[in-house]
Write a protein that binds this DNA or RNA. Sequence first.
DNA 1: CAACTATATTCCCATGTGAGAATGTGGCTC
DNA 2: GAGCCACATTCTCACATGGGAATATAGTTG
Lengths: 110, 110
Amino acid sequence: MGSKALTPQLLGLVAERFRVLSEPARLQLMNVLRDGERTVSELVEATSLGQANASKHLQLLKAHGFVDRRKEGLFVYYRIADPEVFRLCDLMCDHLERHSQARQELFTTP
Amino acid sequence: MGSKALTPQLLGLVAERFRVLSEPARLQLMNVLRDGERTVSELVEATSLGQANASKHLQLLKAHGFVDRRKEGLFVYYRIADPEVFRLCDLMCDHLERHSQARQELFTTP
DNA sequence: CAACTATATTCCCATGTGAGAATGTGGCTC
DNA sequence: GAGCCACATTCTCACATGGGAATATAGTTG
């Protein structure tokens, strides 16, 4: 299925990106940004993360190209860089659902 | 895009699954299994992971429904539980590519 | 049952990372 | 320029996690 050779190095890079998405705090941030640009303060309020924490998570998301930054006066607006990300999340949700069902069947079928 | 409400709890579960895929060793294992069932020993040899290590990673993959197990005599065969996983990896590869390009343009365009 | 083999599990160590407090920095406003 | 505000960075701590060695377990063969 992969159109390219999956060298160990490439696998490492892919893993690295998965890791960025493997944190509830960061998914929360992304999820809020889904509705459009937000300042850091707005994100902090919407997620109930600490300011320092939110900022650090946003840096990481930005470093990996998941979000973009725009500065306007005192405020910094973050936004989703590539909406395709949400397809990843949706796919993962589907998997999760299938897996949950599979586990549930272990109980419901005697 | 998400068909369901993304409660914090659900985000946590999704993050958890991303984390499982965020390890090069585990991606390697999955990548080998892409070509079909393998015993643990075969996987160990193909990935140059330690036996204990490989076993532990496989347990985790199994616990989250990424792989399945089949025991036959002394051997245990692992296989991909849901080939859809590779769409996730492919999507992530695409993202990676786009992001790399974006970064590269920062250098090539003066 | 004893010896052996494939796999799983436990234990220990080193490392990475998230959270919060404190501090730094850039850019307003007066 | 002083003071203030939004955000970033640094520091420290607690904790999770990967790796390897050693050990346990299950299943085979004699």
